[in-house]
Computed example of a mutant assay.
Amino acid sequence: MSGLALEAVVTRPRRPAGRRTRGLWLLPPLAVVAVFFGYPLALVAGQSLTTDAGFGLGVWAEVLGSAEFRDAAWQTVLLALGATTGCVLLGTFLALIIAFVPVPGARTLSRLVDTVLAFPSFLIALAFTFLYGSAGVFGAGGFLYSPWGVLLAEVTFYTPFVMRPALAAFGQVPGVHLDVAASLGARPGRVLWRVVLPAALPSLASGACLTLLLALNEFGIVLFLGAKGVTTLPMLVYGKGIVTFDFPAASVVALVDVAISLLLYGSYRVLAGRGRGAAVDAA
């Protein structure tokens, strides 16, 4: 019996030493995430449950049932969806021109798109103030300080976030597919609708999800423009936390915004993974 046990110990496969140490290397980043993200989020969650009588869901019920929160959530969703729609249409159109139309300077324009991605959002708002402000070049102050001005600024700023994945996806479309479709008598519009756009759809969807995520959390453009009657969820957090010092209510709004952002980020990761898989299959 002891011999069989000894033989089993000897023949038992050993786990590679690399797997043991690999788990240890995960501890430092997990600790950093727990300290710099998990702990503050836990504090915010605890603050949202703080009431005059102790702990409870009274603040949640008060905030979620208020007309102020509903209006801010509605404006946030409308602006984000409008900006995403505009960015997808404009970004796809510009990417198609750069990728398939022999326009002089297309490569320079593509590099310029990468540069715009590094700009802060308030810079666009500042430029719009010089163009459309009350003392700007065009003097359309009423337009700038309305929801339409915020929407135009967000579309201008976030369009490159759709153009970049669209350009990458259009560059992965095999030229032989386009040649075969053209040889079969398909017109350019049909080739675009049946060949090019379906191949780029996962990348366009991931770019749209990323734009929607960023637009939902946009703060600099709305704050810098100071549009009248435009209150988004980030602005509501700022107003309750910084202006009125109502930290429990600000924490509730912030947690709702975080939950929406995490949901959209998960959708973006799924669509981005499908986009990479489609690019690999096409290659």
Rank of each mutant, 00 (worst) to 15 (best):
M1P: 14
L4A: 13
L4H: 11
V9G: 11
V9M: 12
V9Y: 09
V10C: 08
R12D: 15
A17S: 10
R19F: 12
R20W: 13
T21G: 13
L24E: 13
W25L: 15
A31T: 11
V32L: 12
F36P: 11
F36M: 10
F37C: 08
G38I: 07
Y39N: 04
V44M: 02
G46Q: 09
Q47V: 09
Q47H: 09
L49S: 07
D52N: 13
F55D: 12
G58P: 08
E62I: 06
A67V: 09
F69I: 09
R70Q: 14
R70P: 07
D71M: 08
D71V: 08
A72N: 03
A73R: 04
Q75F: 05
T76N: 12
T76H: 03
L78F: 13
L81Y: 00
L81K: 07
G82H: 08
G82D: 13
T85E: 00
G86K: 01
V88G: 02
T92P: 00
A95C: 08
I97F: 01
F100Y: 15
V101R: 10
V103T: 14
A106T: 15
A106L: 11
A106P: 09
S110D: 15
S110F: 03
S110V: 08
R111G: 14
L117Y: 04
F119Q: 03
P120R: 05
S121E: 10
S121P: 04
A125M: 02
A127T: 00
G136K: 01
V137L: 03
F138V: 06
F138H: 02
G141A: 00
G141S: 06
G142H: 07
L152I: 05
V155H: 01
Y158E: 06
F161M: 05
V162Y: 00
M163E: 05
P165D: 10
P165H: 03
P165A: 07
A166R: 02
L167Y: 00
P174C: 01
V176I: 13
A181I: 11
A181G: 11
A186N: 08
R187G: 14
R187W: 13
R187S: 15
P188N: 04
L192R: 09
W193M: 13
W193F: 10
W193D: 15
R194T: 15
P198D: 01
A200R: 06
A200V: 11
G207R: 00
G207L: 02
A208T: 03
C209K: 00
L210G: 05
L212Q: 00
G220M: 10
I221P: 05
V222T: 12
F224I: 10
G229H: 05
T232L: 08
L236W: 14
Y238E: 13
Y238S: 14
K240S: 09
V243W: 13
F245Q: 15
F245A: 14
D246Y: 03
P248M: 05
A250L: 01
A250M: 06
S251T: 07
V256G: 04
D257L: 12
V258G: 03
V258A: 09
V258F: 06
A259R: 02
A259Q: 08
L264S: 08
L264T: 10
Y265C: 14
G266N: 07
S267Q: 12
Y268T: 05
R269F: 11
A272G: 09
G277E: 15
A278M: 02
